[in-house]
Design a protein around this nucleic acid. Sequence first.
DNA 1: CCTGGTCTGTACGTTACCGCACACAAGCCT
DNA 2: AGGCTTGTGTGCGGTAACGTACAGACCAGG
Lengths: 240, 240
Amino acid sequence: MTDLDSPQHNHLLNALPDAEYQRLLPHLERVEMPLGEVIYESGGELRYVYFPTTCIVSLLYVMENGASAEIAVVGNDGIIGVALFMGGGGMPNRAVVQSAGHAYRLRGQLLMQEFNRYEGMLHLLLRYTQALITQMAQTAVCNRHHSVDQQLCRWLLISLDRLPSNELTMTQELIANMLGVRREGVTEAAGKLQHAGLIHYSRGRITVLDRPGLEARVCECYRVVRAESDRLLPPPPTLT
Amino acid sequence: MTDLDSPQHNHLLNALPDAEYQRLLPHLERVEMPLGEVIYESGGELRYVYFPTTCIVSLLYVMENGASAEIAVVGNDGIIGVALFMGGGGMPNRAVVQSAGHAYRLRGQLLMQEFNRYEGMLHLLLRYTQALITQMAQTAVCNRHHSVDQQLCRWLLISLDRLPSNELTMTQELIANMLGVRREGVTEAAGKLQHAGLIHYSRGRITVLDRPGLEARVCECYRVVRAESDRLLPPPPTLT
DNA sequence: CCTGGTCTGTACGTTACCGCACACAAGCCT
DNA sequence: AGGCTTGTGTGCGGTAACGTACAGACCAGG
């Protein structure tokens, strides 16, 4: 499956015209993204941007008391480090690998060169950033109005959309940290889904058995984010 | 007080170099922003961008069942319609005037010309957008972890930062819509603040009596957003 | 002045989630 | 095998916010 791991498996890289892609290619460095790795930290400086291919990265805010909440999720649909080209150099949150895999990284300096030189790169990245903004906005809405059950569905579907298989490696404890709820809350919600035959759960290994079933339970937030991504971003690479 | 109502009272316009500002000036149209006016709607197209001077605009998502939640607030620190230069042309939320006043609007086309022609404009707008992103992210966190009391404090301070006086016109019903909570919840929270002598409340008219007191009660979310705005954006115009 | 509408305060039962405590189960190590 | 660590299920009291209902308070208009 080298396919899944080529730079083109990242939708943004794949959307670049060939000439542009070839120019970038020699500078793309394939890196391992182990579970739990912190890609950048609140207040830190961004030396690289990352284009995930097979990993998933969560952007989360860690509160002063240690509690946390997920702001957004980035997989092979996007890029880690938008603050670089947005001009801030950093953001007050943390990026941490939520599902192990690989990514291609690029020196920030090089990205900025392309960003300033080639208009297509600028527009692509800005459109992606807008999709990211929608995801954050909807996270806020979901946190306000929807139940843990619904949020778990949303979270599973978002993760699933960014993975090649229907299985994810993720303890309930971790999910709870992402959603910013109690671990027991996740146990209960997951229990309901498992009971309904939608997923199978076993010691940090979740298998999604009935994706349509999840989609039927999820709140509108998932659909809004999904629709906006589809609208703003190029269709995923046509790998078989 | 024509000072407060000149285009330069908007921080972004004020941050432009004089030549650039002069070029824009003839195209800036002063418009009235009455309470409740919808500036743009989910799915709608953006013909203009707005630079508030004395009004405050809320970005809010309206759910299928009619409930709503505020995503972010824009006042004289920013611009309404970032989706235009981000490339999406629209966003799945609504912008509504939360506090009446004025703004200067500019045809989207013209903004885009400047955005593409003059690098400083691009960087300024992107930095502002990053600050906006931080505000959204923090809204998500706040919705998850903080009490209505704390959120009300945050909301009051955010509004206060964007107004010239210490008084705001706003019924509890409206605040509840913004925060996405019950009206009674706001009554109770406001009651506590009033009892503590921090504010005075009277039929849609809130007077803030003790701003430091509010700051002492507010959650970290306010400070994070504030610090990030200060970091990313030019200092406010030096009006007396 | 009284009346009607709007805004605010209060009360009460219900629910979702929290915090804590602990039992159980599944894999890992020796 | 036995014991340890890690992950999962469950139960229980506490609390914050909800939905609903309604009473008072203020203001405007006839």
